Simulated scan of single mutants.
Amino acid sequence: MARMHTRRRGSSGSDNPVADDPPEWSDVDADDIEDRVVELAEQGHDPSQIGMKLRDEGVKGTPVPDVKLATDKKVTEILAENDADPEVPEDLRNLFERAVRLREHMDDNQQDAQNKRALQNTESKIRRLVNYYQGDELDEEFTYSYDVAVDVLDRA
Rank of each mutant, 00 (worst) to 15 (best):
Y132P: 00
M52R: 13
L129M: 09
N115T: 05
E123C: 07
Y146R: 03
E39D: 12
K73H: 15
D32I: 02
Y144R: 01
E97I: 03
R128V: 00
I78C: 05
Q110A: 06
E34C: 12
E24S: 10
D46E: 13
A41H: 08
D136I: 00
D66N: 14
A70W: 08
P65T: 08
L95E: 06
D83H: 14
D112R: 02
E90H: 09
D107P: 01
P17I: 03
E137V: 01
A156D: 15
V28G: 08
Q110C: 00
N121W: 04
R127V: 03
T71C: 09
P17H: 08
D112T: 01
D21L: 14
L92Q: 01
V67A: 02
E137T: 08
P22F: 15
D46L: 13
A156T: 09
A118L: 13
Q114A: 12
D112P: 04
R103M: 04
D32K: 14
R55Y: 15
I50Y: 10
Q49T: 08
P63S: 09
Q114E: 15
W25E: 14
Q111D: 15
D29Y: 06
V38P: 07
Q111R: 05
D32S: 12
Q120S: 10
P65K: 07
A99W: 02
V28C: 08
V64S: 06
S48C: 01
A30E: 15
D85W: 05
S12R: 14
E42T: 04
S14G: 07
V130C: 02
D31S: 12
L119S: 06
D136E: 13
N16V: 02
R93F: 08
T71A: 10
R103A: 05
V64F: 09
A30R: 15
N115G: 00
D108T: 11
G58Y: 10
D56G: 00
V150H: 05
T71M: 10
D21R: 14
